[in-house]
Structure formats: structure tokens, C-alpha cells
């Protein structure tokens, strides 16, 4: 099924939401497991950590759409910390705008219509 251009799936919205929350805390970049933790902690929909398949597919879609950018971290840091290297993601300006536009649309759609006043 073809996806309508310019739409964000709930998981994509959750990722952008979590990434922007991390940015407000001073963390401009995040890695896959880090964002899974943040989504689990902050999303009303999420119940537990997002599966690997769903998470990395969504990150890939967001990057392809230009809403995220990514890079491998400096390998010497990973060696020093004795762990595998992290792929670091950051929200782009387009990603931030898309997130706010999507949120505004969601809010507008969920605002109940004002009851019509009947003439007395």
C-alpha cells in the first residue's frame, strides 16, 4: 500500500517527539537504543521498548525523508569505552518543522467542535 507523501506514522512521531525532548535536555544526538528508551518513557502509546525491526526501519524512513541525519561516532570513543560503535542520529530543521506541523494537525483533529447555539 502506497504511503501518502508528507505523513508521519505514529512511531515516527514518537521518535521525533523523543528526539526533541532529548535535545531540550542538551542531547543533540541519540543512538538507536537511547531513543527506544526515551520513546518507551515518554510515549502514551508505547508499551515497552520498540522492536528492533520497527525502530530501525522507522529511523531509516525518517532519514530518507530528510527529517533525521546520522553518522557513526568517533571509533576511538567506542574503543575506549569497550563497546560497539554507535550510529548517532540528529533531528534536522525539516524534521523539527514536520514534527510541529504534524502535532498541530493532530491537535486540530482532536479538538471537539464547538456546539452550535440555537436561536431562542
Amino acid at each position: 500500500m502506497r504511503r501518502k507523501p508528507g505523513t508521519l506514522l505514529p512511531i515516527e512521531l514518537d521518535i521525533l517527539d523523543a528526539a526533541l525532548t532529548l535535545r531540550r535536555r542538551g542531547e543533540d544526538e541519540f543512538h538507536g537504543f537511547g531513543i527506544a528508551q526515551e520513546v518507551a518513557a515518554s510515549s502514551e502509546r508505547a508499551r515497552g521498548l520498540t522492536s528492533h525491526g520497527t525502530l530501525y526501519k522507522a529511523l531509516g524512513r525518517l532519514e530518507d525523508a530528510g527529517l533525521l541525519e546520522s553518522r557513526w561516532e568517533d571509533p576511538t570513543i567506542a574503543v575506549e569505552e569497550r563497546r560497539p560503535p554507535r550510529r548517532l542520529y540528529a533531528v534536522t530543521g525539516a524534521g523539527e518543522r514536520a514534527y510541529h506541523a504534524a502535532r498541530a494537525t493532530t491537535r486540530a483533529a482532536s479538538t471537539p467542535a464547538r456546539p452550535r447555539l440555537e436561536p431562542s
Binding site: 508528507g6 508521519l8 505514529p10 512521531l13 527529517l67 514536520a98 504534524a102
Partner: peptide
């Protein structure tokens, strides 16, 4: 997680 994935997609005009 079914309810999460079935949620309506939000429109992102900027993209």
C-alpha cells in the same frame, strides 16, 4: 502494540 500501530497517521505539511 497493535493499537499503537493502528493509530491514524498525522499529516506533516512541512515534509
Amino acid at each position: 502494540s497493535a493499537s499503537r500501530q493502528e493509530g491514524p497517521p498525522a499529516t506533516a505539511a512541512a515534509t
